[in-house]
């Protein structure tokens, strides 16, 4: 299982990361800039003005732009790619830490086969181990 599965997961990771970078860094430029559902309701129902600037609103990346980059496409795209990078650091870091902590605690012997989680599910060519 190990080799085949980790290769498949690696492929999913590469495709997923590429798709995310393309979405955040490039496609985002073509996204609608209209107010989102809640903003639009807030405006139409008259409570939009109660919104206050977040304490993070002077962040160098506030509102998905990089401070000092005047080209809109570049500013948004860079902000998106930085966001992908930060989310990847925090996300992968968190989940790998969680499992690193867990892996040492349960007394699950390494020799114990872990793959037959669902024998009824075909399609894993390496499931014979």
């Amino acid at each position: 299982m190990k080799a085949g599965t980790s290769r498949a997961v690696a492929l999913v990771l590469i495709v997923g990361m590429l798709a995310s970078v393309v979405l955040a860094g490039f496609v985002s430029f073509y996204a609608s800039t209209d107010p989102d559902g809640l903003e639009s309701v807030a405006q139409s129902q008259g409570f939009g003005e109660t919104a206050q600037d977040s304490a993070a609103s002077d962040s160098a990346l506030a509102d998905y732009g990089v401070e000092g980059v005047s080209d809109e496409r570049l500013s948004l795209g860079l902000a998106g790619v930085v966001g992908v990078g930060v989310t990847a650091l925090v996300g992968f870091g968190l989940f790998l830490l969680l499992t690193a902590g867990r892996a040492s605690t349960p007394p699950t012997p390494r020799t114990e086969p872990t793959e037959p989680t669902d024998p009824s599910r075909p399609g894993d060519p390496s499931s014979h181990g």
């Binding site: 990771l13 995310s20 979405l23 609608s32 998905y64 998106g80 966001g83 990847a88 996300g91 989940f95």
Partner: peptide, 25 residues
């Protein structure tokens, strides 16, 4: 989570971040 699904969870976070940047009319 295990060592196989943990990276997928990280990827899901990244993808959700990216997808949330795409507002559709």
């Amino acid at each position: 989570l295990d060592e196989r699904t943990a990276p997928l969870a990280g990827l899901v976070a990244v993808f959700v971040f990216a997808a949330q940047m795409i507002n559709f009319p």
